[in-house]
């Protein structure tokens, strides 16, 4: 990005000295809802937090292409096939917008991708679950994208300008994703017995992993405090999870499906749906690399990068030849 020259100038080290006055001035700007732009002074921890969060978000989009991509060639109608291909393509596009936003913080996409491939960077735990039937494509659109939207809408007001702008674009484009998924579920639920069974089975498998997408409960979350103070995050994990449940349970009822939580009940006093205990051990295991598809997802991404190396080499070699041809002609 055009900011790198400034960010990595000879006095970069001096600039990183975070004296209290700068820090206070920075916090005042955040409190006044000013946006922080790439070249602005920012605490090193703010930059680190953003790089981690934005790159994880980008990796999730790229890895997230796999479970849905698994059904593009088997989509049951041409309309569904086109919509799914366009959706998975959007996910790649969103990954690219997000990598571009992270690059404004002085880290190259190649570095972020290498961190992912080296297993040093995380991506959303949800994409480590398999898509076993066509109904999973409906469930992902409805639930996974529904959960993602809950998370992403507040990010459109994130204090870091390039991230907020990328999220505005992402949210605008993603509005069709959840509807696409819900429409698939609705069609299955109005279909024959086998289709309805498929829909219920998908909800049974995706419900709990979707609740885990919002991250650990607030009491156990490491990053929430500073992220909130810096207005990178505007709602806590538990708040977003509750919003998601409140929005989704009536949608499940409309489909005639049963949410796989025997403890789920509407609490008249709070006006919220109360849910049963989430299996955080499962979440920890999936994040630690032990989900059903972690190894498969990473292997596939590594192989794609390796298989494409000769193409990228060729493009670079051609660009070099063209440059020298232009120089020779000049």
């Amino acid at each position: 990005m055009y900011t790198q020259g400034l960010n990595q100038g000879p006095d970069a080290a001096d600039r990183r000295i975070e004296d209290a006055a700068l820090l206070q001035r920075f916090q005042e700007r955040i409190d006044a809802e000013e946006r922080i732009e790439p070249n602005d002074w920012m605490p090193e921890a703010y930059r680190r937090t953003l790089v981690r969060q934005i790159s994880q978000h980008a990796h999730s989009e790229i890895i997230g292409m796999q479970p849905e991509g698994n059904w593009i060639t088997r989509a049951p109608s041409l309309r569904r096939k086109a919509a799914l291909l366009a959706k998975v393509q959007d996910e790649c596009g969103h990954g690219l917008y997000l990598y571009a936003a992270a690059e404004t913080l002085g880290v190259a996409r190649e570095e972020m991708v290498e961190q992912l491939l080296a297993g040093k960077a995380k991506y959303s735990s949800i994409f480590n679950y398999p898509t076993l039937t066509w109904a999973d494509i409906g469930a992902i659109g409805w639930l996974v994208d529904g959960a993602a939207i809950m998370n992403q809408i507040p990010l459109c007001r994130c204090s870091y300008g390039p991230y907020a702008r990328a999220m505005i674009r992402v949210c605008k484009e993603e509005s069709f994703h959840q509807r696409q998924g819900y429409e698939i579920m609705l069609t299955l639920c109005r279909g024959n017995g086998a289709q309805k069974e498929m829909a219920q089975d998908a909800l049974n498998r995706w419900w709990w992993p979707c609740l885990m997408m919002f991250g650990p409960p607030d009491a156990a979350s490491q990053h929430t405090d500073t992220s909130t103070r810096w207005k990178i995050k505007r709602f806590t994990n538990d708040e977003l999870r509750q919003k998601f449940i409140d929005a989704t349970v009536p949608q499940a009822h409309f489909l005639g499906l049963t949410v796989p939580d025997p403890d789920l009940r509407f609490d008249e006093a709070t006006g919220h749906w109360a849910h049963g205990a989430i299996d955080w051990e499962e979440f920890r295991q999936v994040v630690a690399g032990n989900g059903p598809c972690n190894a498969q997802r990473m292997e596939r991404r590594r192989r794609t990068e390796e298989d494409g190396a000769w193409v990228r080499d060729a493009a670079r070699a051609f660009a070099e030849k063209e440059k020298s041809r232009h120089r020779a002609a000049a």
């Binding site: 690219l96 571009a100 990328a166 990228r312 493009a315 051609f318 660009a319």
Partner: peptide, 10 residues
């Protein structure tokens, strides 16, 4: 926004 490409045409 931005993107990566080896040359101007791409």
């Amino acid at each position: 926004g931005s993107l990566h490409a080896a040359d101007a045409t791409l």
